[in-house]
Design a protein around this nucleic acid. Sequence first.
DNA 1: AAAAATAATTGGAACGTTCCAACTTTGTCA
DNA 2: TGACAAAGTTGGAACGTTCCAATTATTTTT
Lengths: 345, 345
Amino acid sequence: MAKGRVTVVDIAEAAGVSKSTVSLVLQGSSLVKGATRAKVLEVMSELGYVYNRGAANLRQTNASSSIIGVVVNDLTNNFFAELAVGVDMVVQSAGFVQFLSNTSESIDRQREVISSMREHGISGLLVSPARATEAADFKPLVAAGIPVVVVVRSLPGAKVSSVVADNANGVAMAVRHLVSLGHRRIAFLGGFPDTAVFDERMQGYRTAIKASGIEFDQKLVVPGPPSRAGGIDAIGRALMIDDRPTAAVCFNDAVAFGACDGLRARRMEPGQDFAVVGFDDVIEARSAVPALTTISVDPQAMGRRAAQLLLKQISAGKAEPESVVTAVRLVVRESCGAKNGRTAA
Amino acid sequence: MAKGRVTVVDIAEAAGVSKSTVSLVLQGSSLVKGATRAKVLEVMSELGYVYNRGAANLRQTNASSSIIGVVVNDLTNNFFAELAVGVDMVVQSAGFVQFLSNTSESIDRQREVISSMREHGISGLLVSPARATEAADFKPLVAAGIPVVVVVRSLPGAKVSSVVADNANGVAMAVRHLVSLGHRRIAFLGGFPDTAVFDERMQGYRTAIKASGIEFDQKLVVPGPPSRAGGIDAIGRALMIDDRPTAAVCFNDAVAFGACDGLRARRMEPGQDFAVVGFDDVIEARSAVPALTTISVDPQAMGRRAAQLLLKQISAGKAEPESVVTAVRLVVRESCGAKNGRTAA
DNA sequence: AAAAATAATTGGAACGTTCCAACTTTGTCA
DNA sequence: TGACAAAGTTGGAACGTTCCAATTATTTTT
């Protein structure tokens, strides 16, 4: 029994046909007679045959390994886990398998992982890049004709497709909502200015502020780490501005939670004494106290969208870079003060 | 340029050596002279060579593909995402890559995914099985000599290794804690009696109850779906028992949250009028109101442990089934009433 | 300086599959 | 019935690598 794996020639022998016929059966060719096919299939299940995809796509000149690589920067973050699940859904049903890896924001790890994936002959790559990823990092992939789709974080200058949330519009919606509640001094808290996502969100902020007839004030923009700690720090600085803000749009939900913490530390109640809006709609946003008003992006839908785009490019053969922007929506909860009928000042 | 991929013979030609020598360089053999190695490596990076692992382990008689398959039942659940990250950490650093897939509790999906993984020649499988997985489902893998490690949910009767939390001890700790707060009537809420995890937790409950000199009362065991809704239902039934309980250990945190909801619906405040303890320590446990007292299992550590076990078995060649039980700890927060100095009746 | 030992290199076969062209069997039509 | 077409089957070459035994280059020993 333990004389190595069962191969097509074993099957062929046992079924009394040639290995070519077995191969034909394997690919569901209509050339082989019904009776023969049945016999072969029977022998196959009897001997416990398992297809060797490695051998197969060694032969197939034009690769197409049926593996697609998925790289995310932080699986621990529910946002990215949902994204991966969305990707998996469409990838699976298209008969591909995914090769998922986590980089934990490490660019070295990302490089390692991607090169390992290449060695395994992925036919496409979907990546939510680690911070500080260079556009050039994907050059070799693209040169080799492997379609690459970047998701969540866009990579300016890279000749790859991307699927990102409508960052500008999301922030703009948040600003307009706060304006409609009567706020005029609205801060923008957190985020690193040298990232594409920051730029996009800031742009939405500027546009909406101006469109509301408010003058843009650079002092109200307080960048910082996109974390809870960063939020605490940012709100602290924002409150020291003379003519202090009465509301803030935060870079993401983590910053927003930090801002709430910071407000409380100063005896101010978020949603009553100060309006806070986040971005992402993470799972805790709903159950936090006060529940966070935020911009919701559906990561699972984004994953599906990105996977579809990638599959399209794989089957098209050549990768025409394409940019998709997915819609976001404003979820009004308590932290903006809308629910208790409060308006600013 | 686009005349297909670069292979070892291309390298050999360009470097003026034979393909055998290039192969030797590839595997870091000490047989090749320093100068030659340098030359080969130089040409390799110049031509943009990428190693074809598929071809390689086609030749290597004893497989060892350097891929390990990881299957989880619900990636959306942070518990399992953390687990996967733990696995990834050790798998990566051992030079393997992981092939992660999500089954969403679908047994069909699980079967598909695993067979696809086999086709790709995984050298080991780590799986958190979907509900209703049969022990027999892993028979073929084991027969083919592929090590399998089951994690989180044990599979009684399967001849595979497993890494599970110390369920019995965890529940026992919870019971002892409640007893120390003065409770004597302690219910056990939620969970399906036909699962291994339920059996283990129940066993811990019984043991600790008896060890505390309390008589075991079957009526206090209220099974049900391991969900928030199940918790609401279970607490409702528990409160109708005559000589009603004053505290409950819940099958998991979801049930515990449901129990809290149910208590409030009856104008009872969890942590004051009734003590509730959960299991898992999910992320929301800390931030909920009241914060949930629960049994914490570290999923990332579990993932690491399981991966180590799997790698050990892969390198050992033969898989001697082994069972590992990982430690858990009691995290006292507010829902048990300990923090406000309350004790039962 | 020749023989022996060691270091470095090499060609060819093999892994399990698919593809191609060639072949055999069966069916159809005049 | 013979010629021809269609249906079904087949052996061998190829994919990119590793392994083995054999060969050649370099040292060491006598």
